[in-house]
Amino acid sequence: MTDETFEQAARTYGDMLYRVAYHALKNRADAEDVVQTVLLKLYQQESCFDGEDHMKHWLLRVTVNESRKLLRSFWRRHTVPLDQRDELPPPGDTRGDEVFQAVMALDAKYRLSVYLYYYEGCSVKEAAAAMGVNPSTVQTWLQRARDRLRKTLSESEEEGEGNPYVRPERVP
């Protein structure tokens, strides 16, 4: 791979790789480490890709694998972050924040399935290939993820409706 091709690929897919790793790991620094590893593997890749789609799917697969490796690693399993919790953006008051937090609260396999299917636009088969499982498994995970999101989000809506505090309105 030439330097120019690599740089172009890194700029094109860097954000995508970061989002995949972030969905898997829920931590910015770890996600960046995974992106670095994946891009270096891309740079060292000797065989050619059949096209952009081939490269994209290869990158997705390697990113999922590297994220899993990090999740299973000794240090990740035996150390506790300083703040004792996963690093997530602070909860905001927009609908997007609420939905995003609900997705990130799911198990890693559900989060990744949701991200690949709904954000990246992968088919079930493509998402399954990226995650190294059967398409039927991804279908099950997506179904469960949807059920859990529906439950979580409808509960939060109900809580919102039952809020006794009313925002004061300015009287003209």
Partner: peptide
């Protein structure tokens, strides 16, 4: 309900 557009919008900020 799962608001797909809201999720996509939030993801694109990463």
């Amino acid at each position: 309900m799962f608001d797909l557009n809201a999720y996509r919008e939030r993801c694109s900020e990463l």
